[in-house]
């Protein structure tokens, strides 16, 4: 995993939850979406993406379902659970507070 996007553990989880909030997606699409939306800044490595997805699934924040993908092949689609939606709100609020705080410190300096 490259240094610039060596995201804090919780941050990747937050990004995944946020990405999944509009619709169910498979792993490849999640990585692609994060990359696109961040303007190619954030590149999620497979080595962290899949463990994170499985961990979130074990924890009950997201659920998985096998369905036909855009290529016609069966793929594992992840979607948010009700609990996951709640978690996303909480984590987003936390993130907003944290980034605002960091901004304040940076502005001061």
């Amino acid at each position: 995993m490259g240094k610039p996007n060596d995201l804090v553990q919780g941050t990747l989880d937050l990004l995944i939850l946020k990405t999944l909030s509009p619709e169910a997606m498979h792993g490849w699409a999640i990585g692609k979406r994060i990359q696109q939306v961040s303007g190619e800044v954030l590149q999620v490595q497979q080595g962290s993406l899949y463990p994170a997805l499985h961990r979130l699934e074990q924890q009950g924040w997201i659920k998985a379902k096998w369905a036909e993908s855009e290529t016609g092949r069966q793929a594992k689609f992840y979607s948010l659970t009700a609990a996951g939606r709640g978690q996303l709100q909480k984590e987003s609020a936390n993130w907003a507070r944290l980034s605002a705080a960091i901004e304040l410190v940076m502005a001061e300096a």
Binding site: H26, G27, W28, Q46, Y50, S69, T71, R73, Q74, A75, K76
Partner: peptide, 9 residues
């Protein structure tokens, strides 16, 4: 299978 799909995609 999941990882295989990723590579294929």
């Amino acid at each position: 299978d999941e990882l295989q799909f990723h590579i294929e995609r």
